[in-house]
Amino acid sequence: MLKTVLAPRFAVPLVLAVLVVGLSFALPSNFYLRVAALVWISALAVIGLNLLMGYAGQVSLGHAGFFGIGAYAVAVLPAQFSLHPLLAALAGALAAGLLAYVVGRPILRLKGHYLAVATLGFGMLIAMTISNEAWLTGGPDGMPVERLTLLGWRVRGADTWYWITGGLLVIGAWIAGNLVASPTGRALRALHDSEVAARVAGIDVARAKLTVFVISAVYAAVAGAALALVNGFVTPDKANFMHSIELVTMVVLGGMGSILGSVAGAAILVVLPQVLTSFHDYEHMVLGLIMMVIMIVLRSGIVPGLASLLTGRRK
């Protein structure tokens, strides 16, 4: 019994749930709750991307594109077709998944740098579409997002969104943990290590890659939709190249192939810029320095790095 509870796929969502509940008492003001909600949202997208990068070993430099699709779905669909925001979010997630399925087939045949450039181009295409179709999306200025109402209750306030996004994160981590522990998860780690061996073990490598690409796109779209609803406003910069890079950085910084690492990576890159504002002009320099030091000291990322340091000492 205790052993099943301690298995990573149960332990990780449990740890996160405790973290979400615990922080709600510790955080002193709405400002902190809001920053925490932003961390949970980024972490959700990063968990999805980590399934693709850390487990299956495939890179995507265009994930902000899927994030943008989710965000703009909850902005555009209610405004144009007066769709309920929740249905719009669902439609955004479906659209991102479908698009990932269609572009993933040709793109995922590529490897390494070629895959990186292809996904980069794909992400830019989405960002440009969002920026250029001003009649629909408001163009570079962005557009407002209709407030979410559930059964007549207007969802508002930093604390409410803290709980909703925290809940989404725990659910996302739980699903990801189950996926990783399933035969599909084993197949992903296998093809990461050796595609030839995975093939002769009977794994349909192309299909396994496509599956995880679609799943990671849906994670990004759900996170994008959540961010749009929390902010009440969307801008194209959440779909652009810099945001894709930010997501990839969060994966690597937190730890490839670690779900808790995804949360740690997101937390660092969302919280640190807020903390470092006291350095004024030197803010970005200090942030860059901290990131470099983390990668040099903890080469495999924050969570796996710390874990191996701790177990290493015990031995």
Partner: peptide, 17 residues
């Protein structure tokens, strides 16, 4: 071409994928 980072039993289970 064994899957080096995976547990031995996971390697075997992958054979029965």
């Amino acid at each position: 071409q064994i899957f080096a980072p995976l547990a031995i039993e996971d390697n075997l289970r992958l054979g029965a994928y």
